[in-house]
């Protein structure tokens, strides 16, 4: 089993035996790997019923729910880690989602596709069209990504809120991107945050 690259980064940085909430957990791929390889006590939240059924059928604790409404019921600091992968840009209120994550998780992983990636910029600059790339494969009228953001946007967003960055990873495909040009060169970003 090989995890999606952004999930692999998260899996590599969760401490052994942690309590983890995976929001938008899909069919539970990351959860299963955190449980099996990290001995983590993992819970999941997922919107799609088919995915929830598959996750429950593989023995995971997953509730069907909406990131925007259902996080309110978890107590403060209920988890060592809250994980939000590839979901922030789909939220109606990303700022409220992030503050809920920071309330219920001591640490928070957020991953998102970078709208500042050079292919996205090129597509817009030269084609004059909304970009369709491997990381953003869906046309403008079908996409769930209603709040597209760049890595620099996210940095500014968390800086304004006084959120502390404990780690950051940038990816182009499965390859790691380092250095200051991440906002141009990276397709995906993963941040580890805390209040």
């Amino acid at each position: 089993m090989s995890l999606r690259p952004d999930l692999a980064i998260i899996a590599d940085h969760v401490d052994q035996g942690s309590r983890v909430l995976d929001i938008g957990c899909g069919d539970g791929e990351l959860m299963a790997s955190l449980r099996d390889l990290r001995g983590a006590d993992v819970r999941g939240v997922e919107l799609d019923a088919r995915n929830v059924s598959s996750a429950v059928a593989r023995g995971l604790s997953v509730v069907q729910g909406d990131v925007e409404t259902d996080l309110a019921y978890y107590p403060d600091k209920a988890f060592d880690y809250a994980i939000l992968s590839q979901t922030l840009q789909t939220a109606r209120s990303p700022d409220r989602v992030l503050s809920e994550l920071l309330r219920i998780g001591a640490r928070v992983f957020v991953s998102f596709p970078n709208f500042g990636y050079w292919r996205v910029r090129a597509s817009f600059l030269f084609g004059g069209r909304m970009p369709v790339t491997p990381a953003l494969p869906v046309s403008w009228y079908e996409t769930e990504n209603i709040h597209q953001l760049t890595i620099d946007d996210f940095r500014a967003f968390i800086a304004e809120r006084g959120v502390i960055v404990e780690g950051e990873w940038f990816l182009s495909g499965a390859r790691s991107v380092t250095g200051g040009a991440a906002n141009l060169r990276a397709e995906h970003a993963v941040f580890l945050l805390r209040k």
Binding site: V52, V56, L60, V63
Partner: peptide, 9 residues
């Protein structure tokens, strides 16, 4: 804090 699964079918 209980371990819970839920799905609407």
């Amino acid at each position: 804090g209980a371990a819970a699964s839920f799905v609407e079918l």
